[in-house]
C-alpha cells in the first residue's frame, strides 16, 4: 500500500482494522480520477514576524493573537504563509458522485484530503531545501482552526497572498475556504536547528519539544 492510500484509509476511520477489498478498489479508482481531474495550485510568501506579549505577534504587519501559534513560532524570524487548493474541479467531481454513489463520494473526500496533504508535503520539502540554503529551518504547518488560532485569520492570509487571483482560493462569509479541498497554513522559519517531522508535531516523537503545537 502506498502512503497516500494508507492516509486515505486512515481518513476513512479504519484505524488498525484491515481494509476490505471493495473499499480498496474504490480508493484506487478515486485516486485515478483525482489524478486526472484535480488541479494542484499553491501560493506562498515569506513575511517577517515580530513577537509582542501575551500571544500577540505581527506577521507581515498584520496583528495575530494565538498562544499556540506563538509557541510554535518561538525563535522564528520569519513565516511562510501559504494557501493551496485542489481546485473547483475536485468539488465538481464530488458533487457529481454525491448524486449517484455516496460510498465513492466519501472515499473521494478521503483521497482528496490525502492528496492535498501529499501535495503540501512535497511543496514543504521544496521550501525546506530553499530555506536550508539560507541557513533556515522550517517548523511544521500550522493552520487556522488548530488550537486557539481562529479560522477568522483565513481572510488575512488570503489577502496577504492575493490568493483569489493567484490560485482561485477564496472563502465564504463563514470563513470556509472555497474550493473545499484547500488549506491555508503558516510555517515558521528559524535559525535554530530542529529537525521537524514532515507530518507535523502529532507524528513527531520529540514529546518534550518546546515548540510542540498542542
Amino acid at each position: 500500500m502506498d502512503r497516500r492510500t494508507k492516509e486515505a484509509v486512515r481518513y476513512l476511520g479504519y484505524g488498525n482494522h484491515a481494509v476490505d477489498d471493495g473499499t480498496l478498489a474504490l480508493i484506487g479508482d478515486s485516486f485515478d480520477e483525482l489524478d486526472q481531474t484535480a488541479g494542484r495550485r499553491i501560493v506562498y510568501r515569506i513575511f517577517d514576524v515580530l513577537f509582542q506579549s501575551g500571544g500577540c505577534m505581527e506577521i507581515g504587519g498584520f496583528p495575530v493573537t494565538s498562544k499556540d501559534l506563538g509557541k510554535n513560532l518561538r525563535g522564528c524570524e520569519s513565516v511562510v504563509v501559504l494557501g493551496a487548493t485542489l481546485g473547483p474541479e475536485t468539488d465538481l467531481l464530488m458533487r457529481r458522485y454525491s448524486l449517484t454513489d455516496m460510498a465513492k463520494t466519501v472515499v473521494l473526500q478521503a483521497c482528496g484530503a490525502a492528496m492535498l496533504e501529499e501535495y503540501l508535503d512535497e511543496q514543504q520539502e521544496e521550501i525546506r531545501q530553499e530555506a536550508a540554503k539560507q541557513g533556515l529551518y522550517v517548523r511544521p504547518r500550522f493552520s487556522p482552526g488548530y488550537g486557539d488560532l481562529s479560522i477568522r485569520y483565513q481572510e488575512m492570509i488570503l489577502r496577504m497572498l492575493d490568493a483569489p487571483k493567484r490560485i482561485g482560493l477564496s472563502m465564504t462569509d463563514g470563513n470556509m475556504l472555497t474550493p473545499t479541498k484547500s488549506v491555508t497554513a503558516l510555517m515558521g522559519l528559524s535559525r535554530q536547528n530542529i529537525a521537524c517531522h514532515i507530518r507535523g508535531c502529532e507524528a513527531c516523537n520529540k514529546t518534550d519539544c518546546m515548540f510542540r503545537r498542542s
Binding site: 476513512l12 479504519y14 476490505d20 471493495g22 473499499t23 455516496m102 460510498a103 463520494t105 472515499v107
Partner: peptide, 14 residues
C-alpha cells in the same frame, strides 16, 4: 461496534 466502516456502510446503503 466498529467492525464495519464508513465506505462499507455507504455501499450497503446504496
Amino acid at each position: 461496534k466498529g467492525t464495519v466502516f464508513l465506505p462499507q456502510l455507504l455501499m450497503s446503503a446504496d
